[in-house]
Each structure stands twice: as structure tokens, then as C-alpha cells.
Write a protein that binds this DNA or RNA. Sequence first.
DNA 1: GCAAAAGTGTTTCAGGTACACCCATGA
DNA 2: TCATGGGTGTACCTGAAACACTTTTGC
Lengths: 230, 230
Amino acid sequence: MTTAFYKNKDTHLIAVDCIIIGFRDNDLYILIAKRQFEPMKGGWSLMGGFVNHGESINEAAGRVLDEFTGIDGIFMEQLGAYGEVERDLGERVVSIAYYALVNIDKFDTSLAVKYDARWVKMSLLPELIFDHNKMVKDTINTLQKRAAVKPIGFNLLSDQFTLPMLQSLYEAIYQESIDKRNFRKKILGMDILEKLDLKDKSSSKRGAFYYQFNKDKYDQLIQQGLHFSL
Amino acid sequence: MTTAFYKNKDTHLIAVDCIIIGFRDNDLYILIAKRQFEPMKGGWSLMGGFVNHGESINEAAGRVLDEFTGIDGIFMEQLGAYGEVERDLGERVVSIAYYALVNIDKFDTSLAVKYDARWVKMSLLPELIFDHNKMVKDTINTLQKRAAVKPIGFNLLSDQFTLPMLQSLYEAIYQESIDKRNFRKKILGMDILEKLDLKDKSSSKRGAFYYQFNKDKYDQLIQQGLHFSL
DNA sequence: GCAAAAGTGTTTCAGGTACACCCATGA
DNA sequence: TCATGGGTGTACCTGAAACACTTTTGC
């Protein structure tokens, strides 16, 4: 069904591009792939795809994320729309960008081969095609703001993590070092983490206790009008 | 020119919808119009239009803003993309929403007749078509966050304004009252306002001094690593 | 002279920041 | 026993919040 007023209006290709962030060994990583078609074939690119008629833009982003990572239930948020006329050299394409925070260990590595994809350190990001570098830059910016007021960083870790790991994650996000005692005071003071009896001995002889995020306690906190803030 | 890979991909109508905010008599207002075509003809709607092939989405938003307000150089920022499949009852339309902060006094009132538009108090917003109420809600949210860290509120006022006016503006944005002394201390302490010799006597016998925003001083502040924050 | 809004400082408190040492353990 | 990373408490300082009275002037 086409309503009269909508007739004769221009239509456009709509893409979703996903900035997929992972965390490993104290560094943030981004998943990029060698583009397998023209134009800019062989150039480094974010993970993307086109929006189909039958799916919402969120669904399209979810589909792309699933397709390129093999992980389900990924945390993602919309970054924004990029709509310069000449941004895509192939044709006029408006892109809706999403950033996603994933546990890099759950990544299906066979997909890296299939799509010629790899995780690169954010600090060593090569030149990407089109406006993808700007998308990444905007993501960092947004991530720094969002992670400061919402506990979204946990999506980058496994369910169980140590405080040194968590701290190093936030240091990677903010690109500055944080005082150990102050960090622990704040994060433990919120009472949203549960200490486990288990220790991670992979990075020290003494071992660091595992913790896990307690969403119930967090929701409770919010309901009381209090705020997560680092 | 069409590149092979882009062939056979679905194309979509892309709209821009503008949440146009004004401020008057201690209240925030939003510009809405009676929709003049089907579907939902006669329903209250935000100002919108379709994106043409030859223009960027920002340009499209600027065009719509100009068309419906008659004001040029309007402050606007992208709110985000809305892309549920059934969000527009006429046809599949992905909408990029922009919010704009305008000086309501510069509004070309003849356009209100032409488009059956009017300024309504934000607190008395009627039901709008499609997902437009959600767009407004998201705008308020974003505005509260943005106005706290960037001096964008000034776009809602004339070049010259009094401190009581400015305070009342922030009270409208945050929907809570602010202590006069603390507010003045903070805003004047930033040293981004210039006091004029002129007084506004329209709202009191004594009169309140006019001030104006000094962008140079603000830029200087930022360059020093300091921050605007209310 | 009084009503109505503009303007002005100080005290208090909470939260942020700076800072240094002991602990547990594998090698 | 020693090297390595994990864990802990306090003092200070800055910035936010609470709070009440005087000033101006048109009516």
C-alpha cells in the first residue's frame, strides 16, 4: 500500500554499520574486516549490511552483529545516523551506526577467516573506508560518557571478573590511570558487585577474587534515585 | 553510477522529523502542526519532510527547519534514527530526528497559519502521531544531559537576557527550582557572560541587568581544559 | 509606604583526590 | 627469599547545597 503523499519521494539505501568493541589484555579492540567488494575493495571496514524492508533498523543491526560475531544477545546502542551525500563512494547510502560491546572470548573465530576480519587495538586503528574512522571516534566519545553513568562496561567482560580486570577496563575506556584504592572504594561502595569465593590466579601468584555484577542490586539502586557513576 | 554490490538491495523513504523547542514566559514550548495529508490527517505532528537524493540528512533537517520557522542559522543536533517497520502508517519510513533550539520571538508567525502549526507547552503536549511522542521524550532527556555540559540553552533566548530569565530557562529544562544565589555564583563564576549597562524592566520595577553570552571567553575556557557545567 | 522582583555571602557537608604500606604465593 | 601483583585506610581539599536579608522602584 502506498499513500498518495509518499509517492514521488526519493528512496535510499540504508545501511547499518557496527562498531564492535572488545576488551583483552588491558586494551580495547575493534573488529574490522577487509572489504570484499567494490568500491574500496580490500580497504578496512566496519561490519555492516543493508536494512531490508521487513526489518527494523535495530533488527538489522542485530542481524549484522550476529552474522559477524556469532554471539547472541549482544549489548548494542545506536550511535547515530550518517548521511553525507558522498559518504559512500558506491552510491548514496545513509548509514545508521551502532556500537556493540562484546565479550571477545565468545567470538566465533571461524568468522574471522570467512570475512577476513580481525580484532585490532583501538590505539592502532588503521585508516578505514568512508566515514568509518569518524564513527569509531564518535563511539569512543559516547562510550566514555555512557560508561561513566551506566554499567555497560560489564558487557566487555565475562560474567566473572576480578577488580583489577574491571579497573583496567575503565582505564582503557578513559585512557587514563585510576587510583586503585579510590576505584575500589567507589565501585564496592555502590554495592552492585558480588564477591565470589573463587580466585583468578592467571595474572598473579596471590590471585584476585572474582566478582560478578548483580543486576537486581543495580536496579534497586536506581529505583532509590541513586546513580551509577565512576 | 550503481556498483554491482548495491544492486537488488531494498531502498527506503527517509524522513527527517524536527523537535523544535522554544522558551517563553518560564515555559518550554514545542512547535507542532496539524497534519495536512493522509494517513493520520488532522493529527498532531512534528515538523518533518523527506530526504532528497541530492542533500545530506543534515541539510534536509536544515531545510525543514527553515521551511517551518522562517529562522536561519538555527541550532540543531541529531537526536537519532527511528526505524521500526510499522512506525509510519503510510509506508515504511525511517526517520532521522533532530532537535532544534530556537528563539521563539524570531518565529515567522505567518507560517503558523500556512501549516496550521502552533507552539504548545511541553507540559501540555497532546498525543502526536506515530512515534513522535517518543521523539519528544527522548529530546527532553537528551536536552537535560546536553544543556548541563554545553551552553546550548542560550539558543533559546535572545542575544541579550537577564539572569532571572536564564535561571528560569534552566529550571524549565530540568523541571526543578534552582537556588538563585548558587545559580548566579556558578554561571557568573565561569566568566562567560558579559554584563551590559542595560536593564530589563518588563518584569519588575527595579529591573534586571541584561547579559550576553561571550563565545570567545567560552572557547578560551574549554581550551584550558575547563568545563561548562550547571 | 508597600508590594514585587533583583541582588548579594557564608556555613556546612559530602564526595573526590592524593597518598604508602602490608599480604599472599609461586618460582 | 624474593619478585609480583592484590588488597587496604586516612587526611585533605574542593565544590555542591542550604540558607535570609537588603535594595530598588512603580504604583
